[in-house]
């Protein structure tokens, strides 16, 4: 287990270095941020001074090496625009995004798995068909459009929910959170629903497919032949088997919800990292872009590791480390 963890993190480290290089090349190729940063009326001398101040006058590889040396010390560079450490900038915005993502995932999971079970157990019933029709909508309607319609209905027409911001927050362990105040929940409701909709549809489909397949298995028939109540057959025998793929997908989707909440954050003016990333790309603020992507990749690495551990808990046939197969 420990050897497995070390190997996994070693691989992740290589991914991080490789990815930072790609982003460096990518942003370098797009254009010169100095053009956007200095006053358009500035003369050539001022331009050169600004370039030198940001370290952009050095050769590309030297710039990258400088970044690596800084990163090893925990310094991912300062934002060209705000002149504060890029990491600080991201960590300030990250709690809002993570909160939004978690609430969206909890919504998707707590609705998606039960609805998927119902649709899988009664595929031909009115309810089962209704759930599937709903999930097709969730899949095919674009996120930005759903967000706008939500605002139209609940903010403009009904006036029930606020359309932007985080609302009132309270500090939990030094981190501001919205979901503990009524005002915060009102602000969370629409963006979280908006973000959850696609994942909800995905989980419904995944659970339904798994349930339909599991119900045909001999172990389900045997469990029924043992005289077990239906709720135990479904809740233990079926659910534990279908959870294996579901947990994998939830893990992957949690990462992508955090990384790509950009559209929802933009529509509801949610002060998270998605908005920050878009602004940084517009201004070619390379340190922030690189730092953001490194943080996101690290998040994916951690989530995938947790998923693998959960996997081994759910499926006794899976042993972490791969070496067990040789025994």
């Amino acid at each position: 287990m420990l050897a497995y963890a070390i190997r996994r993190f070693g691989q992740s480290f290589i991914v991080l270095v490789f990815m930072s290089f790609l982003v460096f090349v990518g942003v370098y190729a797009i254009g010169n941020p100095v053009e956007l940063l200095v006053n358009p009326q500035a003369d050539e001398a001022e331009r050169i001074r600004a370039t030198a101040a940001l370290g952009l006058d050095k050769p590309f590889l030297e710039q990258y090496w400088g970044f690596l040396v800084g990163a090893a010390k925990g310094d991912l560079g300062k934002s060209f625009v705000f002149n504060v450490p890029a990491l600080t900038l991201i960590l300030e915005k990250l709690p809002a995004t993570i909160e939004l993502a978690f609430v969206a995932m909890v919504l998707a999971i707590s609705l998606g798995i039960p609805l998927g079970l119902v649709a899988g157990l009664k595929p031909d019933s009115f309810v089962g068909r209704g759930i599937m029709a709903g999930s097709i909508m969730g899949f095919s309607l674009p996120t930005f459009w759903v967000g706008l319609v939500l605002i139209m209905i609940f903010s403009v027409h009904l006036g029930w929910l606020p359309s932007n911001g985080r609302g009132e927050t309270v500090l939990v362990a030094g981190i501001p959170v919205s979901f503990l105040t009524m005002d915060g929940i009102a602000h969370l409701a629409m963006p979280a629903t908006n973000l959850a909709l696609f994942k909800l549809s995905l989980l419904i489909r995944l659970t339904r497919a798994g349930t339909r397949e599991a119900m045909l298995q001999d172990y389900v028939k045997f469990a029924r032949a043992k005289g077990l109540p239906q709720r135990r057959v479904i809740g233990v025998h079926v659910l534990k088997n279908i959870l294996i793929p579901i947990v994998t997908v939830i893990g992957l989707e949690l990462g992508s919800v955090i990384a790509f909440a950009i559209v929802t954050e933009s529509i509801f003016a949610w002060p998270g990292t998605g908005k920050l990333l878009i602004d940084s790309i517009n201004q070619l603020d390379r340190p922030v872009i690189v730092a953001y992507l490194l943080v996101i990749v690290s998040l994916f690495v951690v989530i995938n590791f947790v998923v693998d551990v959960l996997y081994s808990l759910l499926d006794p046939r899976v042993r972490l480390g791969g070496a067990a197969a040789a025994h």
Partner: peptide
Amino acid sequence: AMIFQDPMMTLNPVLR
């Protein structure tokens, strides 16, 4: 009580 054909399939693989 009933016993089924394929013993590889009748016991639930993820339960002890």
